[in-house]
Design a protein around this nucleic acid. Sequence first.
DNA 1: CGAGTCGTTGAACGGAATCAATCGTCGTGG
DNA 2: CCACGACGATTGATTCCGTTCAACGACTCG
Lengths: 196, 196
Amino acid sequence: MNDWAWLGFDSTPVQLKKAERLFGQGAKVQRMHILVNGRVKLIRHPFDGEDVVLHVATAGEMIAEASFFSEVYHCSAIADLPSEIQCIDRNEALEKMLSDTRFSRNVMHLFAQQIRDLRGLHELRNIRSAQSRILTYLATQADSSGKIIVNMSLRDMAYKLGLAHETLYRELRKLETSGQLERPASGEIILRETLA
Amino acid sequence: MNDWAWLGFDSTPVQLKKAERLFGQGAKVQRMHILVNGRVKLIRHPFDGEDVVLHVATAGEMIAEASFFSEVYHCSAIADLPSEIQCIDRNEALEKMLSDTRFSRNVMHLFAQQIRDLRGLHELRNIRSAQSRILTYLATQADSSGKIIVNMSLRDMAYKLGLAHETLYRELRKLETSGQLERPASGEIILRETLA
DNA sequence: CGAGTCGTTGAACGGAATCAATCGTCGTGG
DNA sequence: CCACGACGATTGATTCCGTTCAACGACTCG
């Protein structure tokens, strides 16, 4: 999907099986990671209480970008699917950032992109109604023809949207019944125009 | 609060009165902005429907960092309080980013910080219960003695937490009654230890 | 002084979470 | 190879808690 040539990787990517760990909370930050393929969950382990899913990284994302300037990771990274990850030494990356124009710009782009996505999600959560939250989200994901390829389970989508998965199922069904969307195949959703 | 010396500003900051506009949605991105003092709201104006508050920037933040790499702004910035803003020409900033090590690193830091904050907020919203969401948030804001200086109105805090302001008032009252926190003065909250 | 806003509380409603049960699919190991 | 367990998708019934609507006093600012 993305072209990572600018990263100047010569090494082969790390391969992780499902449930394998890329790094653990508290570990020293020594590398920069780009998720080329697969899915990686970032988990925080609080002193008390149960684990919290901080984020689910999908293909093309930089993993734990926020930790890049920290000494140690504040969360663990665990493969949620078989994944392929490009690594680059932290110091090497920092150096490259100063010497290689394209590199630093691209990294910044990744950061900015991430911020915009997060703000979008935040904005989304301010929508109280489950139905319009879902519609708004789908609208942002759809291409010009209204088609959406869902590359995650509906459960994960529900989590991302901050809804109980049952609610997501129900609302999707309602929207389907009312003709506002179609689901020709699992993992595929088509939005129908409903201009007010 | 923050030291912006590294930005190498020689110019005097822009002064905005309340409700004055820094830039409008769709305008060309020509400068980089750092909010030195005050409060600025980022507003998106959708084609239909009413305006949406994307974010409320407070002192020390870079404004619309996500737009820095875009051609035009995807939102408007409006002073929410009398504000002081440092501006730097976009091209100048990009240049500086490549030539000045400290500058680029600091900008990246700002970005990373922002991402971490946003993720934290996201994480927070996954807590369903209003009470524990509030407690968790306060815990992150408190210093070692449990003291919290609230630099925004409770209404804004409620918005940030994704709660109706009435709910926030009520829950704060409950927590106060049950001795889990004190409010010696407005804008000041003290958390009491309640180890399980 | 009046307009605007914040903080606060009451009452009622509604919608989403929760609990629960079923079905299908996939992977794994005996 | 098939049984079993794990997990995703789906739907029903019920509960509960946060939103919403409403009203009021205090304070600030022009």
